[in-house]
């Protein structure tokens, strides 16, 4: 649904102690590959059909900005980012 479309928009709070959990919705993925381009340490693609493979469910803080951007540009809204 469009309600989920934007991904996470949390911009600030990248300090220590902020944890991020990434979820991918594999059936939704359309293999655009943008997440792999932006955050290759967190996302990869299946050789066969280019569908997303999550490499790191809890990426380190220095990767958070790239992960958030990946969620924003994902055309299928298949990336969910939960930050605490």
């Amino acid at each position: 649904m469009s309600g989920e479309g934007g991904g996470s928009r949390k911009g600030e709070g990248e300090g220590k102690g902020v944890t991020m959990r990434v979820e991918v919705d594999v059936p939704k993925c359309v293999a655009s590959g943008q997440c792999v381009m932006i955050a290759p340490d967190v996302f990869d693609q299946n050789e066969e059909d280019g569908i997303v493979v999550l490499l790191d469910e809890q990426p380190a803080p220095e990767l958070h900005a790239d992960v958030r951007e990946s969620a924003v540009v994902c055309p299928a809204a298949a990336i969910r980012v939960v930050e605490k």
Binding site: G33, V36, E47, G50, I51
Partner: peptide
């Protein structure tokens, strides 16, 4: 989605 996935593999970032 079913048909598109038949042709997505060769366009994966690493293969490109």
């Amino acid at each position: 989605a079913r048909i598109r996935r038949m042709v997505t593999g060769p366009f994966a970032i690493k293969r490109i």
